[in-house]
Design a protein around this nucleic acid. Structure first.
Lengths: 213, 213
DNA sequence: GTCTATAGTGTGATAGAC
DNA sequence: GTCTATCACACTATAGAC
């Protein structure tokens, strides 16, 4: 191993190492942009910041991408694809209702916010049809999964027969998205966890009600 | 009625009339800023836009306020006070659970988003301790009301005895906040309404479960 | 494919006349 | 108290050498 910056005793900032040593320039740029979209949003992220974080120069950015918007679209497409392709407890073992409750309780860092939901509050993003398409289809994919598992729970008699899967799917997705909002409003994880606990309890109550259908 | 701009046949843009004829300069500025905070957020709103919308000149803005931040703090304090002081169905007649369900179903224009919750996604707002205090205390006031009515519903036997009011309050607040996110993501009111319907149904189920406690 | 230099625009804010 | 003119700066983007 020749004397790279990772040699013995060398202290390397994780980000710098990550970006500089293991990715091509294009990827460095999209990864840095994806992080900044999450942390700061689209409007508040400048090309200058992306270059600083990725260690890539100005000329390279405008060589690989036509500009800030192009870079953001590519980066955010990757983010949405990562999120929607990741496996969830919704497809694990267990009864449908258990899976719904397990997915609700997946750890979520409330104060960081949702990478996709965040975009929804950025006026420049909402005004951009291409970005909004990515946002909308990411939510669509997620809601479809919720709906399918909720339908299974109804058929299994774990939820009341009158349950409307498309409604409840939006309710549970909203609890998560709203949990992020509450957590950020209070600067604390606790409101997110409380909101989830309350939703899990409501599903427990619904199971009890279904058993008396 | 002397020849004001509202004389017979005169057509006056509602905004222009509203700002120009009925308010003092300070109020014109805070009202315009409050609207823009809602529509575009803090970071994305420039003093120039505030002046254009209010019809007030640059010199006046910096005479009445020390700058953009000062104006935004004053404007947003007014917004938060308006929202937290308005009466809600939570304090109306009817059983506690009915009041909770009625409040959930208050019409909310999902695509416009929540005036307070919106601030939560703006990095420059989150970094500002003064603005975040206003946000946090507005949510606090709202959550306390939810909690009180939920507690009443539990004591009335309309919700299961094991219900944790502080948890369920956050769940229901999250449904509303998340409903805004979903509505904006899809550019449609429908996801908000669906999320609310699902939450109302869950509360119905919880009432059934409570009756078997 | 990457660099440095620089353009052109809009920002938040101030100066000073009236 | 309000106006117009202007500042210094940061932004997104381009030019052109290497």
């Amino acid at each position: 191993m020749p004397g790279g910056p990772v040699g013995q005793g060398a202290r390397v900032d994780l980000h710098t190492f990550y970006y500089n040593e293991r990715m091509d320039t294009r990827t460095k740029l999209t990864e840095a942009m994806a992080e900044l979209l999450w942390e700061r949003g689209y409007a508040a992220t400048s090309p200058h910041e992306v270059m600083a974080r990725s260690g890539v120069g100005q000329g390279s950015l405008y060589h690989h991408f036509s500009g800030k918007r192009d870079l953001a679209v590519q980066a955010f497409r990757n983010t949405a694809a990562d999120m929607t392709s990741a496996p969830t407890p919704l497809d694990d073992d267990g009864s449908p209702l258990e899976r719904l409750q397990r997915y609700l309780q997946v750890p979520r860092a409330g104060v960081r916010g949702c990478r996709v939901g965040r975009m929804t509050q950025d006026p420049q993003v909402v005004a951009d049809a291409e970005l909004m398409t990515v946002v909308a289809s990411a939510f669509d994919t997620m809601l479809t999964r919720w709906e399918r598992t909720i339908g299974e729970a109804v058929r299994a008699g774990e939820l009341p027969a009158g349950t409307v899967p498309s409604d409840l799917a939006r309710t549970l997705a909203a609890v998560i998205q709203g949990g992020y909002v509450l957590a950020r409003a209070q600067g604390s994880q606790e409101p997110m966890d409380a909101a989830i606990r309350g939703a899990v309890s409501l599903l427990d109550a619904a199971r009890v009600a279904a058993s008396h259908d």
